[in-house]
């Protein structure tokens, strides 16, 4: 079975190999563990360059925009998403000063979301949605095989600027490869993995594994649930999810992000306004001082409790 990080690495290598005039850079991306395998074996097409850089995150963010201004393509591989805080001036201000221009190249920041736990109080930033919100740019979180295919192929090298987040927690786990007929829009904003009539389950952030666990609970209870994942953390069109909810009437939102400004809350507002579901379960986190010390950093889900809250006890039909 292919690991998540091996699979993403292979998709990145494939996409980069067909891109010309591409500059990929970051700290230790072509040395040592190659960011735990994420950047192993990178090579661009004609006129490309791979650069191990100094530890200068602010400059590295600005450099990508400089490359982009010249109509070329840049990828900044960032070892930890929280390091991007040092480059926020560029991510917000520099892009705002150039985003209206024609002829811009591509700039993508691929950041590792350190959600694996026990890294300490300073390394657990999950909030790609917050970064994208203040910068007003798209951001895509990659959770599995199907979304990796579409997001990396569509966005890794493409005119404009965006961020792509990958999960360190999933690095050494088998890549999620759900059977069936997954679908998404062209941009890879929202993915649907299953259809079902008893509930609509929606994963935000990197909560696809937890959302899958919930749908398995439905299976065990001889129920069916539609399963969606919202991968674009900035302003996706979730009409398809609302259509599903209008049919099922029951909603489960699973968000493993740590923001107090959750995209899932915006979705919940729309869902309540437009669909008036008969049951809603919101599985997420609320700030705790425990976040500020080494911890497992994993959103736990009590699947039977979720089904009970929906009025679909798991023991009823099992």
């Amino acid at each position: 079975m292919t690991d998540y990080v091996e699979y993403i690495n292979s998709r990145i290598r494939t996409r980069m190999s067909s891109a010309e005039r591409l500059i990929a850079y970051g700290q230790n991306i072509a040395a040592g563990s190659h960011l735990s395998g994420l950047t192993r074996g990178l090579a661009g097409g004609r006129g490309s360059s791979i650069i191990n850089t100094p530890n200068i995150e602010n400059a590295l963010a600005g450099i990508g925009f400089g490359v982009m201004l010249r109509g070329m393509s840049a990828i900044f591989f960032c070892k930890q998403q929280d390091f991007l805080l040092l480059g926020m001036d560029h991510i917000v201000n520099t892009y705002n000063a150039i985003r209206h221009r024609g002829g811009l190249g591509s700039f993508t920041i691929v950041a590792i979301v350190v959600d694996s736990g026990f890294e300490g109080p300073q390394s657990g930033l999950h909030n790609l949605s917050d970064i994208c919100s203040i910068a007003q740019v798209p951001g895509y979180l990659v959770a599995g095989r199907y979304d990796a295919d579409i997001i990396i192929d569509r966005h890794l090298v493409s005119p404009g600027f965006r961020l792509i987040g990958v999960s360190q927690r999933l690095f050494r786990t088998p890549v999620i490869d759900l059977q069936g007929m997954p679908s998404s829009n062209v941009e890879g904003d929202i993915f649907q993995y299953y259809d079902g009539g008893d509930a609509t389950v929606v994963a935000f952030g990197l909560a696809l594994p937890q959302a899958i666990a919930i749908t398995r609970g439905f299976d065990a209870a001889h129920r069916t649930a539609a399963l969606f994942s919202v991968n674009n953390v900035w302003m996706p069109d979730w009409t398809a999810i609302l259509s599903s909810l209008a049919r099922t009437g029951r909603l489960v939102v699973v968000d493993d992000g740590k923001s107090a400004n959750r995209q899932s809350d915006r979705f919940l507002k729309d869902a309540l306004l437009h669909c008036r579901p008969k049951a809603v379960v919101d599985v997420g986190r609320r700030f705790s001082i425990d976040w500020a010390r080494p911890n497992a950093d994993r959103l736990e889900v009590d699947v039977p409790a979720v089904l009970n809250e929906l009025g679909l006890p798991s023991t009823q039909s099992a």
């Binding site: 005039r21 500059i23 006129g47 490309s48 360059s49 602010n58 400059a59 590295l60 963010a61 600005g62 450099i63 990508g64 925009f65 400089g66 490359v67 982009m68 201004l69 010249r70 070329m72 840049a74 001036d89 560029h90 201000n93 520099t94 000063a97 150039i98």
Partner: peptide, 25 residues
């Protein structure tokens, strides 16, 4: 004039990026 910034120090790393593109090309 490829870029101007109202943020102190911001234009320097953008200038490095432009020069990197010129160097690679």
């Amino acid at each position: 004039i490829i870029y101007s910034s109202s943020i102190l120090g911001n234009n320097l790393s953008v200038a490095a990026g432009v020069a990197l593109a010129e160097s690679v090309a």
